[in-house]
Design a protein around this nucleic acid. Structure first.
Lengths: 193, 193
DNA sequence: TGCCAACCGGAACATCGCTCCGTATGGTGA
DNA sequence: TCACCATACGGAGCGATGTTCCGGTTGGCA
């Protein structure tokens, strides 16, 4: 689990090439067909065998993580920046959540894959590892500022947001962003009235 | 789609018997294994062939609908009653939503199956046909009373609630009921502050 | 009792995830 | 330059599941 020792022999050239080909094929198919596209299709599009796909990415989740790693990273990095720049912690939280929602709804089926349902555990874990601390910081800052009720955990909030984003594509009558806004509004201390 | 003409010849006795057996088997398996239990298992448990299951219930959704029809009906009927009895329309809405959430979270995988994702379209349709008007009435009453902002459709609200219930079983850290409460709180006119 | 439409059962086909192993090849040391 | 072998490849194959199809069975009526 720790970093591989730097003495690790570099991978063979064909291996590196194939890994990239799979990554590219997966990225393309994810856009057009969602993250549930059959592994066979990815292998075919990449011009490799299925064994090769599974060797480089033991589970579908590993592949999804690899494809979206950059975007998740930048979403994670945006958290502290927003907190520093925004007019209030709650505003920062709202902006960050909007970023997160935007990321989820544009990736067909990603939100669905995020529910822990064993199988995509690695995906779930990665998202949580990377984004939960960011969300927790924003939430804590807002709570400290008295702008939100501190009785909801960041975990619960993130899962709720993720769930609200399920099926947000493919259904014009369903606007996940609006519902997420409502959820955030509900975080206001002691509600309204 | 209209009622079958009453001139329809009654089904054969064995057909009726088998339909009931499938229904019973499905109900039992849904409780223990969720609504995604393999059709083969249902057929085996009911002591019939798979062809029989598919003949009586062309899609899994039809079977799910048949199994839960009574509970959906009583949930639908509770709406007007709550509106008549509760102290305020918003309170009635909250109680009814709680009823709905309770129904969803206790049926493993039902909430997941509810997202329109073609395949369980019949399920989605049935729930919407039956419950959406009820929810819409409650929502409209609350809006008329000035207790909620009228800019969210009942459809959106129901889908949001359904989504929030996904995975609510199987994860002790995730309390769908609390998040749904937050969502409802967010409906308060012009927010808090 | 005999007939036939309705109904049954489960084999068969299709899809998909994942594994396994015989084969091919990149890179290295001689 | 060449031979060797660890590394990597490819895709057949297995198990699970959804769904269809058709030959055989049977309930209900004349």
């Amino acid at each position: 689990m720790v970093d591989a020792p730097e003495t690790a022999r570099p991978k063979r050239a064909d291996a590196r090439r194939n890994e990239q080909a799979v990554l590219d094929a997966a990225a393309a198919l994810f856009v057009s067909g969602g993250v549930d596209v059959p592994v066979r299709d990815i292998a075919t599009k990449a011009g490799v065998g299925m064994g090769t796909v599974y060797r480089h990415f033991p589970t579908r989740a590993d592949l999804v993580v690899a494809v979206y790693r950059h975007q998740v990273e930048s979403c994670a990095e945006a958290g502290p920046a927003l907190l520093a720049d925004a007019s209030s912690p709650k505003a920062a939280l709202a902006e960050w959540v909007d970023l997160f929602v935007g990321f989820l709804v544009t990736k067909h089926g990603l939100a669905s894959a995020l529910r822990s349902d064993e199988g995509s555990a690695a995906l779930h874990t990665y998202f949580l590892d990377r984004l939960l601390p960011v969300c927790a910081d924003l939430l804590a800052a807002a709570a400290n500022a008295g702008e939100v009720d501190p009785d909801v955990s960041a975990y619960e909030l993130m899962r709720g947001i993720g769930n609200l984003c399920i099926g947000a594509d493919t259904d014009p009558r369903y606007d996940a962003r609006r519902l997420v806004r409502l959820l955030l509004a509900g975080l206001a201390p002691t509600g309204a009235s």
